[in-house]
Design a binder for these strands. Sequence first.
DNA 1: TAGCGTAGAGAACCGTGGTTCTCTCCGTCA
DNA 2: TGACGGAGAGAACCACGGTTCTCTACGCTA
Lengths: 185, 185
Amino acid sequence: MVLSVNEARDKALDAAEQLFYARGIHAVGMDDVRARSGVSLKRLYGLYPGKDALVEAVLDRRDQRWRERLTAYVDKAGDPRARVLAVFDWLALWFAEPGFRGCAWINAFGEAGATSPAVAAQTRLHKQRFAAQIAEWSAAAGQPAEVAEQLFLLAEGAMVTAGIRATVAPAHAARAAAAALLRQD
Amino acid sequence: MVLSVNEARDKALDAAEQLFYARGIHAVGMDDVRARSGVSLKRLYGLYPGKDALVEAVLDRRDQRWRERLTAYVDKAGDPRARVLAVFDWLALWFAEPGFRGCAWINAFGEAGATSPAVAAQTRLHKQRFAAQIAEWSAAAGQPAEVAEQLFLLAEGAMVTAGIRATVAPAHAARAAAAALLRQD
DNA sequence: TAGCGTAGAGAACCGTGGTTCTCTCCGTCA
DNA sequence: TGACGGAGAGAACCACGGTTCTCTACGCTA
Protein backbone atom coordinates (compact mmCIF):
# COMPACT_ATOMS: atom_id res chain seq x y z
CA MET A 1 0.00 0.00 0.00
CA VAL A 2 1.61 3.20 -1.15
CA LEU A 3 0.51 6.39 0.58
CA SER A 4 0.54 9.79 -1.03
CA VAL A 5 2.24 12.59 0.83
CA ASN A 6 -1.09 13.96 2.00
CA GLU A 7 -2.33 10.56 3.14
CA ALA A 8 0.86 9.93 5.09
CA ARG A 9 0.67 13.39 6.63
CA ASP A 10 -2.92 12.80 7.72
CA LYS A 11 -2.13 9.45 9.25
CA ALA A 12 0.88 10.86 11.06
CA LEU A 13 -1.08 13.83 12.38
CA ASP A 14 -4.00 11.64 13.44
CA ALA A 15 -1.76 9.30 15.38
CA ALA A 16 0.34 12.06 16.90
CA GLU A 17 -2.68 14.08 17.95
CA GLN A 18 -4.32 11.15 19.69
CA LEU A 19 -1.13 10.11 21.45
CA PHE A 20 -0.03 13.60 22.51
CA TYR A 21 -3.49 14.41 23.83
CA ALA A 22 -3.88 11.15 25.71
CA ARG A 23 -0.41 10.92 27.28
CA GLY A 24 1.21 14.32 27.01
CA ILE A 25 3.89 15.32 24.55
CA HIS A 26 7.09 14.16 26.17
CA ALA A 27 5.58 10.82 27.12
CA VAL A 28 5.14 9.96 23.43
CA GLY A 29 8.11 8.87 21.35
CA MET A 30 8.45 9.18 17.62
CA ASP A 31 8.41 5.40 17.50
CA ASP A 32 4.98 5.43 19.16
CA VAL A 33 3.76 7.72 16.41
CA ARG A 34 5.24 5.37 13.84
CA ALA A 35 3.59 2.34 15.43
CA ARG A 36 0.14 3.89 15.57
CA SER A 37 0.23 5.63 12.22
CA GLY A 38 1.98 2.96 10.19
CA VAL A 39 4.16 5.67 8.71
CA SER A 40 7.80 4.69 8.91
CA LEU A 41 10.29 6.76 10.85
CA LYS A 42 12.11 7.58 7.66
CA ARG A 43 8.98 9.00 6.11
CA LEU A 44 7.97 10.80 9.30
CA TYR A 45 11.26 12.65 9.22
CA GLY A 46 10.72 13.36 5.56
CA LEU A 47 7.34 14.93 6.28
CA TYR A 48 8.47 16.87 9.36
CA PRO A 49 12.01 17.84 10.22
CA GLY A 50 11.63 16.71 13.82
CA LYS A 51 9.33 16.09 16.75
CA ASP A 52 8.96 19.80 17.46
CA ALA A 53 7.65 20.43 13.96
CA LEU A 54 5.23 17.52 14.32
CA VAL A 55 3.93 18.96 17.57
CA GLU A 56 3.40 22.33 15.92
CA ALA A 57 1.60 20.77 12.97
CA VAL A 58 -0.66 18.82 15.30
CA LEU A 59 -1.61 21.87 17.32
CA ASP A 60 -2.14 23.90 14.18
CA ARG A 61 -4.52 21.42 12.57
CA ARG A 62 -6.34 20.86 15.85
CA ASP A 63 -6.88 24.60 16.21
CA GLN A 64 -8.67 24.77 12.87
CA ARG A 65 -10.79 21.70 13.54
CA TRP A 66 -11.68 22.70 17.08
CA ARG A 67 -12.90 26.12 16.08
CA GLU A 68 -14.77 24.71 13.09
CA ARG A 69 -16.64 22.26 15.30
CA LEU A 70 -17.52 25.00 17.76
CA THR A 71 -18.78 27.45 15.15
CA ALA A 72 -20.70 24.73 13.32
CA TYR A 73 -22.56 23.99 16.54
CA VAL A 74 -23.17 27.59 17.48
CA ASP A 75 -24.40 28.40 13.98
CA LYS A 76 -27.32 26.03 14.52
CA ALA A 77 -28.60 28.20 17.39
CA GLY A 78 -31.15 30.90 16.73
CA ASP A 79 -31.09 34.30 18.35
CA PRO A 80 -27.88 35.99 19.46
CA ARG A 81 -28.36 35.26 23.15
CA ALA A 82 -28.92 31.56 22.47
CA ARG A 83 -25.80 31.52 20.33
CA VAL A 84 -23.69 32.78 23.20
CA LEU A 85 -25.06 30.14 25.53
CA ALA A 86 -24.64 27.48 22.85
CA VAL A 87 -20.89 27.78 23.39
CA PHE A 88 -21.35 26.19 26.80
CA ASP A 89 -23.70 23.53 25.45
CA TRP A 90 -21.00 22.59 22.99
CA LEU A 91 -18.45 22.45 25.80
CA ALA A 92 -20.70 19.92 27.53
CA LEU A 93 -20.72 17.75 24.42
CA TRP A 94 -16.97 18.02 24.12
CA PHE A 95 -16.35 17.20 27.79
CA ALA A 96 -18.52 14.10 27.45
CA GLU A 97 -16.46 12.65 24.63
CA PRO A 98 -14.58 9.49 25.57
CA GLY A 99 -10.95 10.23 26.30
CA PHE A 100 -11.57 13.90 27.10
CA ARG A 101 -8.60 15.13 29.07
CA GLY A 102 -8.94 18.91 29.15
CA CYS A 103 -7.76 21.52 26.69
CA ALA A 104 -4.86 20.35 24.52
CA TRP A 105 -3.29 23.82 24.50
CA ILE A 106 -3.53 24.36 28.23
CA ASN A 107 -1.96 20.95 28.73
CA ALA A 108 0.74 21.62 26.16
CA PHE A 109 1.43 25.03 27.63
CA GLY A 110 1.83 23.59 31.10
CA GLU A 111 4.19 20.97 29.79
CA ALA A 112 6.25 22.84 27.22
CA GLY A 113 5.22 26.49 27.36
CA ALA A 114 8.28 27.47 29.35
CA THR A 115 10.79 25.72 27.13
CA SER A 116 9.18 25.93 23.69
CA PRO A 117 8.42 29.38 22.30
CA ALA A 118 6.49 27.71 19.48
CA VAL A 119 4.11 25.94 21.84
CA ALA A 120 3.66 29.10 23.89
CA ALA A 121 2.91 31.14 20.78
CA GLN A 122 0.43 28.59 19.43
CA THR A 123 -1.36 28.49 22.77
CA ARG A 124 -1.64 32.26 22.90
CA LEU A 125 -2.87 32.36 19.31
CA HIS A 126 -5.49 29.68 19.84
CA LYS A 127 -6.80 31.28 23.02
CA GLN A 128 -6.83 34.69 21.44
CA ARG A 129 -8.89 33.34 18.53
CA PHE A 130 -11.32 31.65 20.89
CA ALA A 131 -11.66 34.81 22.95
CA ALA A 132 -12.21 36.86 19.78
CA GLN A 133 -14.91 34.45 18.63
CA ILE A 134 -16.70 34.73 21.94
CA ALA A 135 -16.37 38.50 21.79
CA GLU A 136 -17.95 38.50 18.34
CA TRP A 137 -20.93 36.41 19.38
CA SER A 138 -21.23 38.35 22.60
CA ALA A 139 -21.24 41.69 20.78
CA ALA A 140 -23.93 40.39 18.42
CA ALA A 141 -26.02 39.79 21.51
CA GLY A 142 -25.54 43.40 22.54
CA GLN A 143 -23.09 42.63 25.35
CA PRO A 144 -20.18 44.88 26.33
CA ALA A 145 -16.62 43.69 25.95
CA GLU A 146 -16.24 43.14 29.70
CA VAL A 147 -18.93 40.47 29.61
CA ALA A 148 -17.24 38.71 26.69
CA GLU A 149 -14.02 38.46 28.68
CA GLN A 150 -15.93 37.05 31.65
CA LEU A 151 -17.59 34.44 29.46
CA PHE A 152 -14.19 33.47 28.14
CA LEU A 153 -12.84 32.99 31.66
CA LEU A 154 -15.83 30.82 32.53
CA ALA A 155 -15.19 28.64 29.49
CA GLU A 156 -11.51 28.30 30.37
CA GLY A 157 -12.27 27.42 33.95
CA ALA A 158 -14.80 24.85 32.82
CA MET A 159 -12.31 23.19 30.45
CA VAL A 160 -9.65 22.91 33.09
CA THR A 161 -11.98 21.68 35.79
CA ALA A 162 -13.72 19.19 33.52
CA GLY A 163 -10.33 17.80 32.57
CA ILE A 164 -9.14 17.44 36.15
CA ARG A 165 -12.38 16.05 37.56
CA ALA A 166 -13.28 14.06 34.46
CA THR A 167 -16.87 15.23 34.58
CA VAL A 168 -19.22 17.26 32.40
CA ALA A 169 -20.71 19.27 35.25
CA PRO A 170 -18.47 22.35 34.91
CA ALA A 171 -20.02 23.05 31.51
CA HIS A 172 -23.45 23.29 33.08
CA ALA A 173 -22.22 25.45 35.94
CA ALA A 174 -20.45 27.76 33.52
CA ARG A 175 -23.56 27.98 31.35
CA ALA A 176 -25.65 29.02 34.33
CA ALA A 177 -23.09 31.65 35.27
CA ALA A 178 -23.00 32.91 31.69
CA ALA A 179 -26.76 33.23 31.60
CA ALA A 180 -26.64 35.23 34.81
CA LEU A 181 -23.91 37.53 33.48
CA LEU A 182 -25.64 38.45 30.22
CA ARG A 183 -27.14 41.93 30.46
CA GLN A 184 -30.87 41.99 30.05
CA ASP A 185 -31.93 45.52 29.11
CA MET B 1 28.79 23.38 56.37
CA VAL B 2 26.81 20.45 57.64
CA LEU B 3 23.08 20.55 57.08
CA SER B 4 20.53 18.83 59.25
CA VAL B 5 18.03 16.59 57.58
CA ASN B 6 15.36 19.27 57.80
CA GLU B 7 17.63 21.96 56.43
CA ALA B 8 18.62 19.78 53.50
CA ARG B 9 15.00 18.89 52.86
CA ASP B 10 14.01 22.55 52.82
CA LYS B 11 16.80 23.50 50.45
CA ALA B 12 15.96 20.61 48.14
CA LEU B 13 12.25 21.46 48.12
CA ASP B 14 12.94 25.17 47.59
CA ALA B 15 15.17 24.49 44.60
CA ALA B 16 12.92 21.82 43.11
CA GLU B 17 9.81 23.94 43.48
CA GLN B 18 11.36 26.93 41.76
CA LEU B 19 12.78 24.84 38.94
CA PHE B 20 9.71 22.69 38.34
CA TYR B 21 7.45 25.72 38.34
CA ALA B 22 9.66 27.76 36.04
CA ARG B 23 10.52 25.08 33.47
CA GLY B 24 8.10 22.21 33.92
CA ILE B 25 8.82 18.90 35.61
CA HIS B 26 10.42 16.83 32.89
CA ALA B 27 12.62 19.70 31.77
CA VAL B 28 14.37 19.69 35.15
CA GLY B 29 16.96 17.05 35.96
CA MET B 30 17.94 15.86 39.37
CA ASP B 31 21.34 17.37 38.73
CA ASP B 32 19.69 20.76 38.23
CA VAL B 33 18.09 20.38 41.65
CA ARG B 34 21.46 19.44 43.09
CA ALA B 35 23.13 22.47 41.49
CA ARG B 36 20.55 24.97 42.74
CA SER B 37 20.06 23.50 46.19
CA GLY B 38 23.65 22.59 46.97
CA VAL B 39 22.39 19.26 48.25
CA SER B 40 24.41 16.43 46.74
CA LEU B 41 22.76 13.78 44.60
CA LYS B 42 23.61 11.16 47.18
CA ARG B 43 21.80 13.08 49.86
CA LEU B 44 18.86 13.93 47.60
CA TYR B 45 18.31 10.24 47.03
CA GLY B 46 18.63 9.68 50.74
CA LEU B 47 15.90 12.23 51.44
CA TYR B 48 13.60 11.09 48.64
CA PRO B 49 13.61 7.69 46.95
CA GLY B 50 13.40 9.24 43.49
CA LYS B 51 12.31 12.15 41.35
CA ASP B 52 8.66 11.14 41.57
CA ALA B 53 8.73 11.35 45.35
CA LEU B 54 10.43 14.74 45.16
CA VAL B 55 7.72 16.01 42.83
CA GLU B 56 5.05 14.80 45.22
CA ALA B 57 6.75 16.42 48.18
CA VAL B 58 7.04 19.71 46.31
CA LEU B 59 3.38 19.75 45.35
CA ASP B 60 2.35 18.77 48.84
CA ARG B 61 4.27 21.56 50.55
CA ARG B 62 3.17 24.09 47.94
CA ASP B 63 -0.46 23.15 48.55
CA GLN B 64 -0.17 24.00 52.22
CA ARG B 65 1.68 27.26 51.63
CA TRP B 66 -0.59 28.37 48.79
CA ARG B 67 -3.76 27.90 50.80
CA GLU B 68 -2.22 29.53 53.86
CA ARG B 69 -1.32 32.60 51.87
CA LEU B 70 -4.81 32.81 50.42
CA THR B 71 -6.61 32.43 53.71
CA ALA B 72 -4.26 34.87 55.44
CA TYR B 73 -5.19 37.49 52.87
CA VAL B 74 -8.91 36.79 52.91
CA ASP B 75 -8.98 36.85 56.70
CA LYS B 76 -7.99 40.52 56.60
CA ALA B 77 -11.21 41.37 54.77
CA GLY B 78 -14.26 42.45 56.70
CA ASP B 79 -17.77 41.39 55.86
CA PRO B 80 -18.57 38.05 54.21
CA ARG B 81 -19.19 39.52 50.77
CA ALA B 82 -15.87 41.37 50.82
CA ARG B 83 -14.15 38.16 51.86
CA VAL B 84 -15.45 36.36 48.79
CA LEU B 85 -14.24 39.12 46.51
CA ALA B 86 -10.92 39.25 48.33
CA VAL B 87 -10.12 35.89 46.76
CA PHE B 88 -9.87 37.63 43.40
CA ASP B 89 -7.86 40.49 44.83
CA TRP B 90 -5.39 37.97 46.11
CA LEU B 91 -5.27 36.32 42.69
CA ALA B 92 -4.29 39.69 41.23
CA LEU B 93 -1.41 39.93 43.71
CA TRP B 94 -0.31 36.41 42.89
CA PHE B 95 -0.48 36.93 39.12
CA ALA B 96 1.66 40.05 39.48
CA GLU B 97 4.50 38.20 41.18
CA PRO B 98 7.66 37.97 39.09
CA GLY B 99 7.98 34.58 37.46
CA PHE B 100 4.26 33.84 37.65
CA ARG B 101 3.53 31.08 35.16
CA GLY B 102 0.01 29.91 35.96
CA CYS B 103 -1.17 27.30 38.43
CA ALA B 104 1.47 24.74 39.33
CA TRP B 105 -1.10 21.95 39.59
CA ILE B 106 -2.81 22.70 36.29
CA ASN B 107 0.60 22.76 34.66
CA ALA B 108 1.68 19.55 36.36
CA PHE B 109 -1.60 17.88 35.48
CA GLY B 110 -1.23 18.80 31.83
CA GLU B 111 2.28 17.46 31.81
CA ALA B 112 2.08 14.35 33.94
CA GLY B 113 -1.56 13.84 34.87
CA ALA B 114 -2.04 11.13 32.29
CA THR B 115 1.02 9.13 33.24
CA SER B 116 1.36 9.79 36.97
CA PRO B 117 -1.56 8.80 39.20
CA ALA B 118 0.16 10.62 42.07
CA VAL B 119 0.24 13.95 40.23
CA ALA B 120 -3.35 13.50 39.11
CA ALA B 121 -4.48 12.73 42.66
CA GLN B 122 -2.60 15.68 44.15
CA THR B 123 -4.11 18.00 41.57
CA ARG B 124 -7.62 16.78 42.30
CA LEU B 125 -7.03 17.11 46.02
CA HIS B 126 -5.66 20.62 45.78
CA LYS B 127 -8.47 21.81 43.54
CA GLN B 128 -11.06 20.17 45.72
CA ARG B 129 -9.65 21.94 48.77
CA PHE B 130 -9.65 25.27 46.96
CA ALA B 131 -13.22 24.73 45.80
CA ALA B 132 -14.27 23.76 49.33
CA GLN B 133 -12.66 26.91 50.73
CA ILE B 134 -14.51 29.08 48.25
CA ALA B 135 -17.73 27.24 49.06
CA GLU B 136 -17.21 27.94 52.75
CA TRP B 137 -16.64 31.67 52.26
CA SER B 138 -19.44 31.80 49.74
CA ALA B 139 -21.87 30.11 52.12
CA ALA B 140 -20.90 32.56 54.87
CA ALA B 141 -21.99 35.31 52.50
CA GLY B 142 -25.34 33.64 52.11
CA GLN B 143 -24.71 32.33 48.61
CA PRO B 144 -26.05 29.04 47.28
CA ALA B 145 -23.70 26.24 46.32
CA GLU B 146 -24.22 26.89 42.61
CA VAL B 147 -22.69 30.34 42.96
CA ALA B 148 -19.70 28.93 44.80
CA GLU B 149 -19.01 26.57 41.93
CA GLN B 150 -19.28 29.44 39.45
CA LEU B 151 -16.83 31.52 41.48
CA PHE B 152 -14.44 28.59 41.47
CA LEU B 153 -14.63 28.30 37.68
CA LEU B 154 -13.93 32.01 37.34
CA ALA B 155 -10.86 31.68 39.53
CA GLU B 156 -9.58 28.71 37.53
CA GLY B 157 -10.16 30.48 34.24
CA ALA B 158 -8.35 33.54 35.54
CA MET B 159 -5.32 31.48 36.65
CA VAL B 160 -5.01 29.74 33.33
CA THR B 161 -5.48 32.87 31.28
CA ALA B 162 -3.14 34.96 33.39
CA GLY B 163 -0.50 32.29 32.97
CA ILE B 164 -0.86 32.11 29.21
CA ARG B 165 -1.12 35.83 28.60
CA ALA B 166 1.31 36.80 31.34
CA THR B 167 -0.95 39.57 32.57
CA VAL B 168 -2.88 40.41 35.73
CA ALA B 169 -6.03 41.54 33.93
CA PRO B 170 -7.94 38.24 34.20
CA ALA B 171 -8.04 38.64 37.97
CA HIS B 172 -9.88 41.94 37.60
CA ALA B 173 -12.27 40.56 34.99
CA ALA B 174 -13.02 37.57 37.19
CA ARG B 175 -13.58 39.81 40.18
CA ALA B 176 -16.11 41.88 38.27
CA ALA B 177 -17.90 38.73 37.15
CA ALA B 178 -17.91 37.42 40.71
CA ALA B 179 -19.41 40.64 42.00
CA ALA B 180 -22.14 40.38 39.38
CA LEU B 181 -22.88 36.75 40.25
CA LEU B 182 -23.28 37.27 43.99
CA ARG B 183 -26.96 37.27 44.94
CA GLN B 184 -28.07 40.49 46.49
CA ASP B 185 -31.14 39.90 48.64
C1' DT C 1 46.24 9.65 67.36
C1' DA C 2 43.91 5.87 64.79
C1' DG C 3 39.77 4.19 63.15
C1' DC C 4 35.01 4.77 61.83
C1' DG C 5 31.11 6.62 59.64
C1' DT C 6 29.05 10.14 57.09
C1' DA C 7 28.88 13.43 53.31
C1' DG C 8 30.24 15.56 49.02
C1' DA C 9 32.14 15.53 44.24
C1' DG C 10 31.74 13.54 40.36
C1' DA C 11 32.25 9.50 37.41
C1' DA C 12 29.85 5.51 35.94
C1' DC C 13 25.96 2.82 34.61
C1' DC C 14 21.90 2.08 32.05
C1' DG C 15 17.56 2.71 29.86
C1' DT C 16 15.11 5.79 26.86
C1' DG C 17 14.16 8.42 22.95
C1' DG C 18 15.31 11.60 18.90
C1' DT C 19 17.56 11.03 14.74
C1' DT C 20 20.12 8.75 11.13
C1' DC C 21 21.80 4.90 8.52
C1' DT C 22 21.77 0.30 6.29
C1' DC C 23 19.77 -3.21 3.95
C1' DT C 24 16.34 -5.00 1.30
C1' DC C 25 12.28 -5.01 -1.53
C1' DC C 26 9.58 -3.62 -5.22
C1' DG C 27 7.65 -0.81 -8.87
C1' DT C 28 9.04 1.90 -12.88
C1' DC C 29 11.15 3.03 -16.95
C1' DA C 30 14.62 2.76 -20.66
C1' DT D 1 14.99 -7.52 -18.65
C1' DG D 2 18.04 -4.87 -15.83
C1' DA D 3 19.31 -0.56 -13.55
C1' DC D 4 17.44 2.96 -10.66
C1' DG D 5 14.99 5.25 -7.02
C1' DG D 6 11.85 5.56 -3.42
C1' DA D 7 10.00 3.32 0.78
C1' DG D 8 9.76 0.28 4.85
C1' DA D 9 11.88 -2.37 8.68
C1' DG D 10 14.69 -2.04 12.02
C1' DA D 11 19.36 -1.55 13.76
C1' DA D 12 22.61 1.91 15.02
C1' DC D 13 24.14 6.13 16.88
C1' DC D 14 24.24 9.53 20.28
C1' DA D 15 22.85 12.62 23.91
C1' DC D 16 20.44 13.08 28.00
C1' DG D 17 18.86 12.10 32.52
C1' DG D 18 17.65 9.02 36.62
C1' DT D 19 20.12 6.37 39.67
C1' DT D 20 24.10 4.24 41.80
C1' DC D 21 28.88 3.72 42.91
C1' DT D 22 33.71 5.12 44.01
C1' DC D 23 36.92 7.83 46.05
C1' DT D 24 38.27 11.16 49.15
C1' DA D 25 37.93 14.35 53.03
C1' DC D 26 36.66 15.43 57.45
C1' DG D 27 34.85 15.33 62.10
C1' DC D 28 34.00 12.53 66.02
C1' DT D 29 35.24 9.17 69.45
C1' DA D 30 37.91 5.66 72.09
